[in-house]
Amino acid sequence: MTMVSTPAGRIEHAAHQASNDVAAFDGVSKLFGPVTAIDNLSFTIKKEQLVSVVGVTGCGKSTTFNLMLGLFPPTTGSVRIFGHDPYAEFTWYRKRVAVVFQDARLLPWRTAYQNVCIGMKFAGIPRDEWRDCAMQWLERLGLAGRENSYPHQLSGGQRQRVSLARAFAVDPELILCDESFSALDEVTAERLRGEFVSLVRDGKKTAVVITHNLTEAVSLGDRALAMRSPGQIVADLALTPSMTATERDGLRSELLGILRDEDGAAEIDHE
């Protein structure tokens, strides 16, 4: 376990090979009118890393997420995902990036099976591959027999499983999760987190999980980035699967301390 506290907006990284970088933010700032959402943010994420990004509400997590997704360009600096510009080369990322949102965002007019297929359809995967792939993912995520159910007939956890199946079915190299487990009850969230980590590991994917849940941040992956407003990384934690629960608790407390120091009474989920 290593912990690196950094000066505002800066983090020193170990030397890395550029080809191994999935995401690279270099001096990125983003302004919305007079409001600075992100100020001079730099970090890299390597291939097959599972990185959680944690911070208080309004610290710039979602802006970072949307920049990675290419929904808007940075005001200054450079964002590179797989060495390309996600905003300027939006369609290049078709089939390479998939997103799991906080709410499942299933199309209400499509069944669970059709919702999994729609991701593949949007991503341009040939139609003859949809059926086997969708059924396989639904089964893997415990939804066998529910493929013909419409979203309103599924529980919140089942809807989120469909959303995970939709993301993994396109076989993306990078999976972005925006507080994907925060709307679920703790038992379901815990189970889904475990399944998500297995799927990422087994598929050798790179994943970035935005969260405001400290426990989730220190238990989910290989690395946790703590952000403070305006979009600056204040801690970069290396995590290992062998860490004990006590070690993770200590890390969580330490993170909480850092975020409290930076933002006063942090609006963060302590669970």
Binding site: L71, F90, F101, R105, L107, I118, G119, K121, F122, G124
Partner: peptide
């Protein structure tokens, strides 16, 4: 807008976006 963003995250064609969303 959430549904549109979800669809956009998969980078669909304009026609697919119209027909399916």
């Amino acid at each position: 807008a959430e549904l549109r963003d979800m669809a956009r995250s998969f980078r669909p064609s304009k026609w697919s976006m119209f027909r399916d969303v």
